[in-house]
Nucleic acid binder design. Structure first.
Lengths: 221, 221
DNA sequence: GATAAAACGGAGCAGGACTTCCGATTCGCT
DNA sequence: AGCGAATCGGAAGTCCTGCTCCGTTTTATC
């Protein structure tokens, strides 16, 4: 019982030098691939593009979720920062608009990020923490714009989320910025106007929204 | 050289009774499955659900496109009929609205139909003929509504097509009618209003729109 | 430099989807 | 009923994707 001085259960040894180098290589490569192809890009392809063996990738990240978490924690922070900056905007409508624009920009540039934003992952997930901080900020953006009378009063946070995701799917090789055209259209629809009829049906619940996102991306469950 | 009386190349013999029965069975089953799962539902599953062998399905429809064509020709006709009826509406805005509503209704109810409407199939395809008749009618709906001053002047046919497809993806088990909420939002964006800024960027070309649809549905190429 | 532990790489296995093939069956005709 | 031809069914072959396993190589330590 000579080494009771060390910490509790997890005795973390530093990675060997070659392993550490490969870990970074995997992260960089996976970031690229996930951005292009989404979160289910094959480990085989990550390995090939990184110039290492598949086994190495599986050894370092036995669960795909670990890889995703390692890659996207900071990206989600970035989204939160965007929302906060939007909330600081003096004009409420400006704020909402800016948030949508920047958020879509990011998600269009990175398909993996788009998918991560939609996921509801198991408890204890670090990414979930980040995503949950986003909710209240967006609520604030919406309420403020409604109080100012510029945003129609019957839209809710899930409506915004839903449309944000839709717009983020509006890209293609040619015309990568096409989403801006349809965001403009959406914003005109979101703006409060005199004789406007209220929207039919209720806004979807969070879970419903999640379910639809899965449908959209052809994902099961 | 005894039988030069019969027609040219294609000598069509009627199917045997059991074969004809199975053909119908396959069509009915495939219609169900395609509606639920889209056009790439497995032949295996069609066979299992129909209670027949896979070989039978492959023998009758060696090319999936034949099956698709047999199933959707009339559905596309139906879409054309909807558009024509919409064009007969006295009020132009009513007409456009009605077209969108009914078209989305159909496409939401049948995922296969949605996918067929997006495809650009090889020349000589009967479905293409139907789809191509749709274009001018929709153009007419749009121009008429713009001439009346109700539809904003800077939207084009591809914009409508694009959004039609988007809306058709807005369903889920719970709240199957949710798309109506977002169609209402879209329509408010499409309506011409006094100080409205023109939409940024150009409307997508037909091919670009097609490319994006493939992206959306996760299809390759 | 020698040794043991850690890490590497990619061949190969498992599971699933699509398609073919052929012995058994059903049908139409005499 | 009896026969040949058309059709059936599903086992088996092929291909593709995800993952594991183990002989070889690299690293840290003495």
């Amino acid at each position: 019982m000579g080494r009771m001085t060390t910490g509790p259960v997890t005795e973390e040894r530093p990675l060997r030098r070659d392993a550490a180098r490969n870990r970074e290589l995997i992260l960089r490569t996976a970031a690229e691939l996930f951005a292009e192809q989404g979160l289910e890009a094959g480990y085989d392809e990550i390995a090939k593009r990184a110039g290492i063996g598949v086994g190495t990738v599986y050894r370092r990240f036995p669960e795909r979720s670990e890889l995703v978490q390692a890659l996207f924690e900071s990206r989600i922070e970035e989204m939160v920062a965007i929302a906060e900056e939007a909330a600081d905007q003096p004009d409420p409508w400006e704020g909402l608009t800016m948030f949508l624009e920047r958020a879509i920009e990011r998600q269009v540039a990175d398909r993996g990020l788009k998918e991560v934003m939609v996921q509801t992952i198991a408890e204890g997930d670090h990414l979930t923490v980040g995503r949950e901080r986003l909710g209240p900020i967006i609520d604030g953006l919406i309420e403020r714009a409604q109080a100012a009378g510029t945003l129609r009063p019957d839209v809710e946070a899930t409506d915004i989320g839903m449309n944000l995701m839709l717009m983020s799917s509006m890209t293609m090789p040619e015309q990568p910025e096409l989403w801006r055209r349809y965001l403009a259209l959406l914003l005109d629809g979101l703006r409060a106007a005199p004789g406007q009829k209220p929207l039919p049906l209720a806004a979807p619940a969070d879970e419903a929204m999640h379910a639809l996102m899965c449908n959209l991306h052809g994902r099961r469950a």
